[in-house]
Simulated assay, not measured.
Amino acid sequence: MELRQLSYFSKVAEARSFSKAAAILHMTQPSLSRQIMALERELGHALLIRTPQGVEPTPAGVGLLSHLDSVFAQVERIPEVVRTAGNELRLARIGVPQGLPQDWGVALLRALDQQLPRVRVSLHEATTEEQRQLLQHGMIDLGLLHTAAPELTCRFLLTQRMGVAVPPESALATAATISFAQLDGLRVMAHAAGEVDVEVSRVQQLTEAAGAETEWLFRRFSEHSWLIALASKVDGVLVTRTSARRHLPNWVWVPVTDRDAAGDDLDIRTWAAWRDPAPSHLREIVDVMRSVADSDHG
């Protein structure tokens, strides 16, 4: 198959129309249709279906679309790969999750420059589950995961405390710690499922165990998290200290003390993960990561 055919398919799926996609691509509709048909023949599956509402991807098409973002991202990085190899350097593609402590990340990059000067890193932001898929498909070389994946080789790196960020005027702002019982009657925002290893069901179970009536809002965190929190009029945000500093710099962060039924806390743990056999420079990178890891980061 050709990369341009994948690009054509992506554009038709995005436009939900062969004619609109053809106009965007500056080609005729029959020519575009022939390219898509050739791709479908090679893959052995129909990728698009015409409906009264327009063109929709088939289940096979949906699966291909979910994979193409990674493919196109890797293609865009080809100049970086060639430039690095041309300078006789080793490139490591590393996945990073949201909420990684910034000071730890800065310290890591400095340490890599000092200890592994012939290695260059290319960072890809993605959730734990997204990184597991990227690792399986060889799209990244090393992942920083919030869970120890059994299908991968993993090495523990660091722990981040979980807590609740509250407005300065909140009655909880002066507390040394916060329990889920103290969230009774409050509206609290937390990470959406899949972002960090504090699952929706686990948070809800802890709330029930504490006998609290808490209204939870589960959202994917981004640069606009503070705006979402304000618009939703939440009383607090369940988050790590690092994320609180980044997204809610004027709020007060207080650590959470609760543990689940198994006695586990809510702290976020991060593992370095890779597929074996791994080149020696990847293991050297992990050694550097571990050397700068600080379990007191929050």
Score class of each variant (00 low, 15 high):
M1C: 12
Y8F: 08
Y8G: 00
S10C: 06
F18C: 02
S19G: 05
K20T: 07
I24M: 04
L32V: 08
S33N: 08
R34V: 09
M37G: 10
H45V: 11
I49G: 01
Q53D: 08
Q53N: 06
Q53W: 03
G54K: 03
E56W: 07
T58N: 09
G61Q: 08
V62Y: 13
L65F: 03
L68D: 03
S70F: 15
F72R: 09
F72K: 07
V75M: 14
R77K: 11
I78A: 10
E80I: 12
V81K: 13
R90E: 08
G95R: 10
Q98H: 08
V106K: 14
V106P: 10
Q114P: 02
L123Y: 14
T128C: 13
E130P: 05
Q133I: 11
L135A: 07
H137R: 15
D141F: 07
L142D: 05
L144W: 00
A149S: 11
L158I: 12
M162D: 02
V164G: 04
A171W: 06
I178W: 06
G185T: 05
A190H: 02
H191V: 01
G194Q: 01
V200Y: 05
V200I: 11
T207L: 12
A210F: 12
T214L: 10
T214Q: 14
T214M: 12
T214G: 10
E215H: 15
W216I: 04
F221P: 06
L230P: 00
S232L: 04
V237S: 00
S243L: 12
R245G: 01
R246I: 00
W251S: 03
V254N: 00
D258E: 07
D258L: 04
R259H: 02
A261D: 05
A262D: 05
I268Q: 03
W274A: 07
R275H: 09
A278W: 03
P279G: 03
S280T: 13
H297D: 06
H297T: 12
G298M: 13
